[in-house]
């Protein structure tokens, strides 16, 4: 399968990339690792006139502690997350989640920023960042703005990112090496999650629970979180995981099946993370 013809540009600096997006944003698409974009272009479900390749911008490949947070450049690959000694000590949920994305070849190319911007409801990274109360940093012609990931997604594959804005950084709090879990349910090892649940213990002591593929966007298991905050048991709190959700139906399962999975996976994840 071959994509519709397009122009290709590989800006040498972040400023160049942002300037290019400012003038061509409406008919351009940003390419980082290309592991969501190229398959979609090959299927001709996307046909941008211009592809702006930011995959090699060193300015978007950082991963460092900044105060109470970890700043991760948008073009940081899954492989870089998996092997990061900084994350292993400071936010061990992220490498664990990244290690479940696709397969080694995909992890050598796919990027955190790409996954966040693409916003696949079955994607692992958006829910992980949501569990961490992370922030998405966007840069456009008028500078940078930070959006809490809880406000970033507006629907299926839809975000608040404007066409002239680039996802440049993801910021997460330093949650440490323990107190987390990721439970992902798939038919085959490199499939997308039918449902997955990410649990993160925050510096405040709060336990956050985020779910994959239980809605058009990643969502939090708010009833479970509230029950835990009230001192309810893991089993009782996990039983509330699907409360208020309206998960999708597809060939992998009915909404009822997904609601069941959400409860089971939440219980397992909580038992691993905080029991």
């Amino acid at each position: 399968m071959i994509p519709v013809a397009f122009d290709y540009q590989r800006p040498q600096t972040l400023d160049e990339a942002v300037a290019l997006l400012a003038t061509r944003g409406e008919d351009a698409t940003v390419l980082a690792g290309g592991h969501s974009l190229l398959p979609v272009m090959k299927l001709r479900m996307a046909a941008p006139e211009l592809v702006i390749d930011i995959g090699r911008l060193a300015e978007l490949r950082h991963l460092r502690v900044e105060g109470d947070e970890i700043a991760i450049g948008a073009a940081t690959r899954y492989r870089d997350l998996v092997t990061s000694t900084v994350l292993a000590a400071e936010c061990a949920l992220l490498p664990a989640v990244a290690a479940t994305v696709g397969d080694p070849q995909v992890r050598h190319r796919g990027t955190l920023g790409g996954a966040i911007a693409h916003g696949d409801p079955a994607g692992d990274m958006p829910a992980a960042i949501l569990a961490l109360d992370g922030t998405v940093v966007l840069q456009g012609p008028n500078g940078r703005r930070s959006v809490p990931v809880a406000e970033f997604y507006t629907g299926l594959f839809s975000t608040v990112r404007e066409p002239d804005e680039l996802v440049v950084e993801i910021r997460v709090p330093r949650t440490g090496a323990t107190g987390w879990a990721y439970e992902k349910f798939t038919r085959r090892s490199n499939d997308w999650a039918i449902v997955a649940v990410a649990v993160a213990t925050m510096p405040s002591g709060a336990v956050n629970v985020a779910m994959v593929n239980m809605a058009g966007t990643p969502i939090r298991a708010t009833a479970t979180e509230a029950a835990l905050a009230e001192g309810k048991s893991i089993v009782d709190a996990a039983a509330l995981a699907a409360e208020g959700t309206n998960p999708p139906a597809d060939t992998h399962g009915t909404p009822e099946y997904r609601r069941h999975l959400a409860q089971v996976l939440t219980r397992r994840a909580l038992q691993t993370a905080i029991a």
Partner: peptide, 26 residues
């Protein structure tokens, strides 16, 4: 041809990639 089977795996700067999902330009 959909990033699933791995038959097109090559090394790019020493790391395995699926060459059906990489542009020559990349």
């Amino acid at each position: 041809d959909t990033t699933s089977c791995g038959a097109c795996t090559v090394l790019l700067d020493g790391e395995s990639v699926k060459s059906c999902t990489v542009l020559a330009a990349q």
